[in-house]
Amino acid sequence: MAQWETSLANQQKLREEHDRFTRAGPRVLTSAERQTITALASDITGLWHAKSTMVTDRKELVRPVQRLNQLSYYP
C-alpha cells in the first residue's frame, strides 16, 4: 500500500509541476535582447570568430544550415 501512495504522491507532484510550467508561458524577449540577437545574426562571421564563441556554440550555428541542406535535397 505504501508504494501505491508514493506513486500517487509522485503523480500529483508531476501534475503540479506541469501546471506551473504551462501557466508560466514563454519568456518574452526585451527590446535590447532582440537588438542583440539581430546584430549577432547579421554578423555570423564575427560571431564565429569571436573569442567568446565556444566549439559547442559553433555547432549550434551550423545545425540550421545543415538542416536546410537536408531539406533542399527533396524537391
Rank of each mutant, 00 (worst) to 15 (best):
S31T: 09
E33M: 04
M54A: 05
L71Y: 06
T53R: 01
E33D: 06
V55I: 01
T22R: 07
F21W: 06
I44T: 12
E5I: 08
S31G: 03
V28L: 09
I44P: 09
Q11M: 03
P75W: 03
A24P: 01
N69A: 14
R63T: 02
T30F: 14
N10L: 11
L68F: 12
E33W: 06
E60W: 01
R34F: 08
T56K: 04
A50I: 11
G25R: 00
A39G: 06
M54R: 05
R34C: 11
A32G: 10
W48N: 00
D57T: 01
Q35Y: 02
Y74H: 14
L40Q: 13
L29W: 07
A9S: 07
Q70M: 06
L14S: 09
Q3E: 07
W4C: 05
A41V: 03
P26S: 08
F21Y: 10
R63C: 02
D57N: 02
T36M: 13
D43S: 09
L68R: 14
S52E: 10
W48L: 02
D19I: 03
R63S: 01
W4K: 11
D43H: 12
L71N: 07
K51W: 05
Y73A: 11
S72H: 14
V55N: 03
E5G: 12
Y74P: 07
I37P: 10
R20D: 08
P75Q: 04
R67M: 15
A24G: 02
